[in-house]
Amino acid sequence: MDKFTTLTGIAAPMPLVNIDTDMIIPKQFLKTIQRSGLGKNLFDEMRFTQDGQEIPDFVLNQPAYRQSEIIIAGDNFGCGSSREHAPWALLDFGIRCVIATSFADIFYNNCFKNGILPIVMPQDVVDVLMADARKGANARVTIDLEAQTVTTSDGQSFGFDVDSHRKHCLLNGLDDIGLTLEKAAAIDSYEATAATLRPWA
């Protein structure tokens, strides 16, 4: 997993609530057995017509936002299916950070496993960031994970919360499995006890 430390990039405004993972990556693209290559189908049904033509109005098709690395969105981003293909598609397109008023739990968790930083901000801050994002490609947003700040193109800075363990893993690009395997003795011991207490499990 790539580290996430700081990021300065274009933010795409997506002022919709309930952007679900079926929208982010429709089911026909879940048949891959790889993690890579999904970026071309990110938001497929919003981005392309049925015969594959770009829909010019869609934000990521607009010249100013084609290189977006950040998405600003409404409530409950990433709701629905647990498909990790959603963060894989975002990452493959080049999105490293999503800022919204709230996230669905599984999607939120999946982001951290892939080097994407999801940031929860209150509505008034999201409103400011959305307005800033609407200025286009010259308005670059800066995210500093160590300092836990988001700074708009005109220098307004906002703090955000992030779980300390997840922050540590993102900053260092750490693999969870490796960390957990260091606790193998604790797992062995738990299993031995559980085999006595709940032998049917």
Binding site: S82, E84, P87, I106, N110, I177, T180, L181, A184
Partner: peptide, 14 residues
């Protein structure tokens, strides 16, 4: 429900 990274985590570590 869990994502695929967590599927791998559970497979490897339970």
């Amino acid at each position: 429900g869990i994502g695929t990274s967590e599927v791998e985590h559970v497979l490897a570590t339970q």
